[in-house]
Structures are given as C-alpha cells and as structure tokens.
Design a protein around this nucleic acid. Sequence first.
RNA 1: GGAGGGGUGGCAGAGCGGACUAAUGCGGUGGUCUUGAAAACCAUUAGCCUUCGCAGGCUCGCGGGUUCGAAUCCCGCCCCCUCCGCCA
Length: 424
Amino acid sequence: MLDLRFVRENSDLVRKAVADRGLEVPLDDLLEKDRRRRAVLADLEEKRARHKRGNKEIGERMRKGEDPVDLREEMGALSEEIRALEEEADALEEAVREILIRIPNLPHESVPVGPDETFNREVRRWGEPRTFDFQPLPHWELGERLGILDFQRGVKIAESRFTLLRDKGALLERALINFMLDLHTREHGYTEVFPPILVNEESMFATGQLPKLEAEMYRCRDDVLYLIPTAEVPVTNIHRGEILEEADLPLYYCAYTPCFRREAGSYGRDIRGLIRQHQFNKVELVKFAHPDTSYEELEKLTNDAEEVLRRLGLPYRVVALSTGDLSFAAAKCYDLEVWLPSGGEYKEISSCSNFTDFQARRANIRFRPSGGGKAQFVHTLNGSGVAVGRTVAAILENYQRADGSVEVPEALRPYMHGLEAIEP
RNA sequence: GGAGGGGUGGCAGAGCGGACUAAUGCGGUGGUCUUGAAAACCAUUAGCCUUCGCAGGCUCGCGGGUUCGAAUCCCGCCCCCUCCGCCA
C-alpha cells in the first residue's frame, strides 16, 4: 500500500507507475473522494469539539443541581448531525481505502520499463549449459524410470499437480532442504524459523496476497485460514504491528515450508513434471531492512540465493523483471532462472524482491530511529533460496548420465549418506 | 466441544455513567547528586487523522446499541487464561 499523502501529492508519478505496469487504477476517483473526505472531516471535527464542550457544561451544571433542558436538546440535535457526518466520512474513507489497497507498488527507477516479460533484462549468467553426447531425458521420465517420482499415485491421492516422492527422491528432497537451510543459517547469517503453514486474513493482507490473489489460494472450509502460497507470508508477519529497534536492523530470517497454490488460470502450462505443482517445498529468505540500505540488501539476498545454485553446479542466469512483469507489492525483482536441458531454456527457480515500505505499511512494521523521533516503516525483502521441487528437476536433468542414472552433486552428498549417484 | 474467568498506555494494574485531560507502580529516556555506579530526588515517557500553522479530533480487544454524555450499561463477534472432555 502506498502512503495516501504521497499519492495525493505525487499523483502524476503514481499515474505513470501504474501505467508502466500495464494496469489501470481509478486514481482521479480516489483523489476526488479524498478531497471530499477531508472537507467532511473538517466540518465533523468542528461539530464534535462543540459537542464535547456542551456535554462538559451539562455535567457541570447538573452537579450544581440544575437541569439544562435546552442545552440537552441542543446537544441531542448536534449528536444527530455528527452521526450523519461520521457516516459520510466513514463511507468516503472506506472508498478511498478500497482504491488505495489496489494500487501496486512504485517500481524502482532501475526497473526496465515495458508491458511484459519480453522487456525483462538479463543481468548475468553463471555456468555453461552442459552438452550431451546422448539424448537427455526430461526429469519426469528420469524420475519415473528411477522409481523416485510417482506422478500417477500423486494424482490418485490428491489430484493432478501433486506428486509422490519415493525412496532416493524423497531423500533428495529432504537433503536439498537441509543443504539450503544450513547454507543460509551457517554461512549467510539468517535465523531459521518454522512458521505456521495456515495463516489468517490479516497476514495475507499484510503481504499483499489479499485481496488480489484470493483465487490463487486454498482456504479452509470451517475456519478463516489460508494455506500459505509462500513462507514470505508467515515470516514477514512475524513482526506485524511491531516497532523494531534501528540497531537491530537488518533482520534476516530463513524458513523451509511447504507452499500451496491453486494455479488457477494456468491449465495448460507445465503440465508434466515437477515444475508447476499445487504443493511444493521452498526455502525462503526474508529480510527486514533499513530504508537506506534495502537495495544493497536486495543484491546480497539475490547473491545468497544464487550461491545455492553455484554450490550445486547448476547453470543459471539472473533477470531483472520489467515493470509489466513485476508482482503487485514489489518495487524491484530479480528472477533466478536455472538451466533445464529438457526445454533447452532457463526456468524460474527463485524470485528476489524488494518491497520497500509497501508491505510494511500494510503490516504496520516500523522501527524507532536510534537518535529518537518518529517510528518509520522498515523495508521488507524476500526471495526463494530456492524452490526445492524445481531444484530436484534441475539436478535430475543436468546430472543425468547415458545409462539413466543421475549423479548426486558433490555438495549434496553429505546430506545423502554419501550417495554418489541415484541408480535404477 | 463444555464450564468459568479475563482483554485498559512498553509492562503490571486501578477505574465500572459527567474533573478520565485514564490513578498508581515498574521499565525507558534526560537531569541533579556522585571519583564512577547504585540509591534517592526532579522532569519526561502512545499512536493515528485533519491543518501551512494555531489548534482540533479519534483510539480503553472489534462492531453495533442506549444516553445530552460510555473505559464504565446492553447486544453480537474475536482473542487469551483456567478446569473438564477429546487428541498427535
């Protein structure tokens, strides 16, 4: 959410930012309602002040034994007027808010301007895609042949886009989670947390999933709780409504959680394999940063996520998303894309974003400046570090051998009882 | 799920129709005193909204209602605690 005062005073800037994203927002409507609300409020407050003084006088006179009937009647009438004005002011405030919460964050000046992903800009590449002297298989075929991915039974147990991991497949998944958590906690300075996987509406609103992405989420039938689509939600909400100490910033958290997404509207996409699942595991990195350093923190966070891929020896590239591809709450975002031989392309495996004060304002997360003074909103950041299911796919495809076995990346072997390869 | 108790400032806790402009204590900050510290004493110690400012308004879990007037009375909801039941 943007600051209403900022929107009021910089409407042209906001208008341009929304247009750059290829979106439309009834900004003039908002400005007009905001103007009217402030006019009503001035009137209302003047009447309330009069009402207060009058009531105080009634109290004083009644204590002296009088009954000021005329004043009581006057205050009664004033009370009616106040009630009407309150209703008007509340309605206007609500209308303003309804528009305001749907305005996306302002893209950072370094974000490439363009209507869609074709305007994304590649920032760097790491690693060389391997050349095969045999016909490489897609990971779903490798996984089924190795008996570690069971798609049919996943569908039987749940529905399509759910997969059963077996034996070395389950072990590989678990090894990756532990490897990533260890890397971030022991070498990158993150504090590990394990948060609730079901969260309430306030939490979903705070990070920006609600109201816009309601259809993307699984909801419980008898309780107003949602399955998290990413650990970003519960972890960012750790400090919702809190005032942090400036000296404690930046705070680094990482969390492994399962994630659940309905993938509404992506019927035909990535239908085979592990790429687009309704349930997947992810290790997430979350930061609460000082506004002055949040963009440096974004670079560091992105590098922390990249380190996972470098240690695993998976070729990747980093892409700066354009205004049209940027998510609702993000001011800037780098996607990490891992090389997948089956498609002969780079595929998103992590998304690292700076949300500036956009989520912090919705979540009311502030910090008290060390020198004293007004509490300010922190900047929140997060990024996958990284998506586990897609990493499994990338390892299977990039480390496959001609005989259908898959070499275990060296960094992972300590986490897999020294196993060097997954064989049929 | 059943029964009871309770949500008041950073924390504890009083107030239970009109001086609430929310007592008091603790904690925090600044100061006096001190070689330094502790103690003591003094001062200070919420957020938000409107406004250029003066100033005004809102907020006692949330939402309604009664009343000239609600932290206080009534109704609904949410959350927490204790006990019982169920349960990994």
